[in-house]
């Protein structure tokens, strides 16, 4: 039986080499593409003919859009609206990858369970935060780390800690999502293994497999929740970081 980590194995579908770099098309790439296509269908159908009184698809897209704009309004303010498309793209991409990876199908793969993907998204968010911060405030952006009205030495010490915590943001953002996805899938796999192992108990077949199966059903529901919540947390933290860059304190 396959180990719980094998579901995260990268399988190369089409080896590609560009300028000495390995850019092979893998199962990870495939599921990012599936997520992209699903989002594209969702958005293009939902906004094909926008109506004042929305239909079902449009209402669904509007719901997500409203969710993002409300988040930006609450955390950033009126200037945050300009970043609505970016935050929307990040949120819906993470959400689609998380949810599609939960499909109970042998080929299903969760790109967001790989730190390369989550780190890529987190670095994108972090990079945009830095660019916006320096573009808007210039070198004043560094005052983000400097506590006001504080004794110089203490302030310097706090500033050092603040700088470190600022620099660790992309990593915490990436590791949070990756760890949640990985842990959830490992747990599902482990209990799935229990179902088979206990269910094939020779003297009394199937009976003992019921318990881990029930646990797995409950866990699947929990994983759907976690898939949504982690996409929300990712977008929420991105909007909070954006707020730092736009409004400083």
């Amino acid at each position: 039986m396959a180990g719980p980590m094998e579901q995260f194995a990268i399988k190369v579908y089409k080896p590609i080499n560009a300028g000495g770099y390995d850019v092979s098309f893998t199962n990870s790439s495939t599921w990012m593409a599936v997520a992209l296509v699903a989002i594209a269908i969702f958005l293009y159908v939902g906004t094909a003919r926008p109506q004042l009184v929305p239909g079902r698809w449009q209402a669904a897209v509007e719901y997500v859009y409203d969710f993002i704009t409300t988040m930006l309004d609450d955390n950033v303010g009126p200037e945050g609206r300009a970043f609505a498309p970016l935050l929307f793209a990040v949120f819906i991409f993470v959400l689609a990858c998380n949810l599609l990876g939960l499909l109970p199908w042998i080929g299903a793969f969760t790109p967001t369970s790989h730190i390369a993907v989550t780190l890529g998204l987190a670095v994108l968010v972090f990079g945009i935060v830095c660019v916006v911060g320096f573009w808007k405030h210039g070198l004043h952006f560094f005052t983000l780390f400097w506590p006001k009205d504080t004794f110089f030495l203490l302030a310097a010490f706090v500033a050092l800690i603040e700088l470190l915590s600022f620099l660790s943001r992309p990593f915490t953002l990436a590791i949070r999502l990756f760890a949640n996805m990985t842990a959830g899938h490992v747990l599902l796999k482990v209990f799935g293994t229990f179902v088979v192992a206990l269910g094939s108990f020779g003297a009394l077949p199937y009976v003992f497999g019921v318990l881990p199966l029930a646990v797995n059903v409950a866990l699947s529901a929990l994983e759907v929740l976690i898939a949504v919540v982690q996409a929300y947390v990712f977008a929420l933290l991105a909007s909070i970081y954006l707020n730092d860059a736009i409004n400083l304190h």
């Binding site: 990012m32 593409a33 790109p111 790989h114 994108l124």
Partner: peptide
């Protein structure tokens, strides 16, 4: 590298 490459393209 392959994941970041395709992530960049798809995103």
């Amino acid at each position: 590298v392959p994941q970041l490459f395709w992530l960049a393209i798809f995103f």
